[in-house]
Design a binder for these strands. Structure first.
Lengths: 344, 344
DNA sequence: ATGAAAGCGCTAACAG
DNA sequence: CTGTTAGCGCTTTCAT
């Protein structure tokens, strides 16, 4: 049997409530008793039963992360791990535990979230990305549970979210290529139902428009956030009669696929084609050639999301800060885009 | 106020205990009442309060993963994410939740684990890797808490663990190079205090010994599980007068560093040097050239660890299975080791 | 097959 | 400043 508050109370010659008060640093407690009780807790190896505390206080000091099933394929694991690290680090600093959950499909995801939130096992949730018509967001929003979306919700505009300014980021990436002298620039996108794909496409288009450059539908290819997708996009684009001299690519992982394909076809980067992509995962720097990439501060995204959620929980749902937080991005220029006057 | 067991009981015209019995599929309950109660639960949107249940049942149906702080630097994030995916998937299938925790240092790690286990928030723990004299293992072992180590413990041999047969795996990798005609083979290792480094070094040495090949201390370089480490190791090895024609590398990430370095020095892989490494992360296949790698089934390691832990928890600590589980590995041969007669 | 009652370990009024 | 009391929502004997 584990040692309880009663055991401590008995041994210290005080009442259980006193011990409880010591535990929560109640102001009206004599320094003396506090000290004595703490000593005895130490001595007995007392650890408060979190479940019991949570039962009466109606707060769990924990949050959950929903790992969307399809995401496993959509995004690189690197991306998620970095996000999770950020979340866990800040949550732990705030004294919160982090629970990770996933479902085999959307229905299971909602069930898992419902069980966790309705069952009062966690106080709030972080969604690792937003898709259109997401039933999980629907559920959380409807039941008024605290939650934060990494990305943005198209369906509701009052949800807390942490995001990159993807339109601007993509504008910057494209602008960089334009500055380097490129006039025919293509875009390799992700799944069109993700807001991130849409936003990045838009930034690209804005940049071209501002520079009065030609825009061609055939220079825009949609795919997934995986390497194969890049490979296929590359084959298509490079077979065009009047092909781009540079590409803006929605994700580093996709760039790797492109790089591999170009290599096989004996195209050189940056000599024949220049590349800029997004997310700046560790590997971007290490590939040959190193890939220019927009660093979106993935860790920071996670860290901030956790912070926002926990503040919201602690303020009891009163939003005393911005609903939507933007994490700054930064273009990391590397060899893949270092050729200012491309061959044709 | 959330709907409780009482609300359901009242509406169904039964006692709370009956509702509880329905919830846990108690055998002696009439199909009729069971059905009616379930209907009302559905209707009211009832979800059992997990904390309350846990408080009385003294079981939490959840486990925790300890993310060791230094690991963030030691291993690639890819590795961990894959492990976590395996753990979370199987745990969820068994009806368990997974809590993730980390500490800034060893002391904090132990505190976190103590709080979680002693505070009865989780039933057991999974350690993502084992180092020598680990205070967390010490704590768990001493207090007789259920836990599983991914890797192996040198300090105790009765701890549950899931591991790769790293000696054999490394033997296989080395043997492969020998079969391809190499006679001078080097080894780029990880931190010497990790069992995985030691085991892989041993397998390499065994293979050389069995083939009567020369072993030179200068062909063995220690480092970390990061790219830079590979870069440095490469510079050293390639500057040797009588340098190896092939390398066994402790981790794919390190191989990337080596690859980058070789590229800068204008060495070609596999023409000048052949490479085989470990872990077979997604990127191994995508680099140029693709890297031969030992697939150790990371996801499977996580999945099995979770299974082992949960079985142990459910059997109340009685070990009715092997203490140490080995996940099979598989050599994936790719271009980086495809040259059978190396130049000298 | 079901109900009544006790209690898991803790917190939170309400008294003093 | 501290003790007493009454639950939080659930499970579990012990009756019936």
């Amino acid at each position: 049997m584990a040692v309880t508050i009663k055991d401590v109370a008995k041994k210290a010659g005080v009442s259980p409530s006193t011990v409880s008060r010591v535990l929560s640093n109640h102001p009206r407690i004599s320094a003396q008793t506090s000290h004595k009780v703490k000593e005895i807790m130490e001595q007995l190896g007392y650890h408060p039963n979190i479940m019991a505390k949570s039962l009466v206080s109606k707060t769990t000091e924990s949050i959950c992360i929903i790992l969307p099933k399809p995401a496993e394929e959509l995004f690189s694991n690197l991306f998620f791990m970095e996000l999770i690290r950020g979340i866990v680090t800040q949550a732990n600093r705030s004294g919160f535990d982090v629970l990770i959950s996933s479902g085999a499909n959307e229905k299971e995801e909602v069930e898992a979230v419902a069980r966790l939130l309705k069952g009062r096992r966690v106080d709030g949730a972080i969604l690792l990305y937003s898709r259109k018509d997401d039933p999980v967001i629907e559920f959380l929003h409807q039941n008024d549970y605290p939650f934060v979306v990494i990305g943005r919700s198209e369906d509701y505009d009052d949800v807390l979210s942490v995001d990159t300014d993807n339109v601007q980021a993509s504008y910057d990436a494209t602008k960089h290529l334009i500055t380097m002298g490129h006039e025919r620039i293509g875009f390799v996108s992700g799944p069109p139902n993700l807001t991130v794909s849409q936003d990045r496409l838009k930034g690209y288009q804005n940049a071209l428009a501002d520079a009065n450059l030609e825009m061609r539908q055939e220079w825009i290819v949609e795919g997934e956030f995986v390497q194969d997708s890049g490979y296929r996009a590359m084959s298509f684009i490079m077979s065009l009669p009047n092909r781009p001299t540079a590409l803006v690519v929605v994700d580093d992982m996709v760039s790797f696929g492109i790089l591999r394909g170009l290599h096989e076809l004996n195209f050189k980067v940056p000599d024949d084609v220049c590349l800029v992509s997004f997310n700046n995962i560790t590997m971007a720097e290490l590939s040959s050639p190193p890939i220019s990439s927009i660093d979106i501060g993935i860790y920071q995204l996670g860290y901030t999301a956790s912070q926002l959620l926990i503040q919201n929980i602690q303020n009891n749902g009163d939003t005393i800060y911005q609903t939507r937080q933007i994490i700054p991005h930064r273009l990391m220029i590397r060899e893949s885009s270092m050729l200012s006057l491309p061959k044709r």
